[in-house]
Write a protein that binds this DNA or RNA. Structure first.
Lengths: 155, 155
DNA sequence: GTGGATTCATTGGACATCCCAACGGTAATG
DNA sequence: CATTACCGTTGGGATGTCCAATGAATCCAC
């Protein structure tokens, strides 16, 4: 066991403080704050986080079937239906039957969808700027590099 | 706008990649992984994350009223009732009427609760060790320091 | 070809989390 | 002593995540 682990375990007369010094707890709090900031920001465009991600996926992968999109974004088929319903009703995407495979919907982004994506990109940038405000640019790069190395594992 | 922001916005022909390079997205993924690792670990003791946190709070603050505990942990009173019900049924905490204020329940941890907390502490440590495995001890300290400075804002 | 397995979009539901409102019982405040 | 506030509890709603099952369409092995 590492020295850090031992020092944390020795403080078990304060079990709550112990939990709150765990990296998983700390990164969870920061993530919750970042999630909230971005969610509030893009809510100005009437989109939720999942809908925003789905719209970005549609814009990136061009005409794409819902199942394929769901696999790429790790989104449940049910949630994909709901997100696309909202995006289609808002006029941001189109669902057209795929002539080559009538099971599939060829989903495409509309010009309005591209426009709202551009606005959401700015809003998300601003939210992230606020999230990282306590760090200078050098520290922000360090943080991103460290988090990136932790993320690699899950892929 | 910073150079980083501009470079990300210029890549908007790939909107999904843009989203996935945002710090909020990256920290969210790492947090989800950490949360899953810890949740799976303490599930071996039959506890959920919220129940674990509540149990730790009871152990730390000694005999304490539910409302006071909820305020300290930022847990909704309704969820506090559910968590304590489970912990009490498992024999990890006791609810006794407070003689000084009959509205309150004086919640205390049992020896079994202390024991399970100790085991959960080890399990949570192991999960966090796995989470941070790609980083050496020096980098782990850097990450914690950077995240800690981001967390300060919310307090 | 043709019959069985697979994939598609969709629907329904389980479950946890988070927030707000209301209740009877109790304590503090004027 | 009347009002106000707090206690634990219950109920409900909104949201997010995940799994199962359906009918239609396609693919594959024989």
């Amino acid at each position: 066991m590492s020295n850090e682990n031992r020092s944390r375990l020795e403080a078990m007369t304060t079990p709550l403080q112990h939990i709150q010094t765990l990296p998983s707890w700390l990164v969870g709090r920061v993530a919750a704050r970042g999630r909230g900031l971005v969610a509030d920001a893009i809510a100005a465009e009437g989109l939720r986080l999942l809908q925003h991600a789905v719209l970005a996926g549609v814009a990136e992968f061009g005409p794409v079937a819902q199942a394929e999109l769901g696999r790429r974004l790790a989104v449940d088929p049910k949630d994909m239906v709901g997100a696309l319903n909202h995006l289609q009703q808002a006029g941001y995407v189109l669902r057209a039957p795929d002539p080559a495979d009538r099971r599939k919907n060829a989903v495409t982004v509309t010009p309005e969808g591209v426009a709202v994506l551009a606005r959401c990109a700015e809003l998300a940038e601003a939210a992230n700027t606020e999230l990282l405000a306590p760090l200078n640019p050098d520290e922000q790069r360090q943080l991103m590099a460290l988090l990136g190395r932790l993320r690699q594992v899950e892929v």
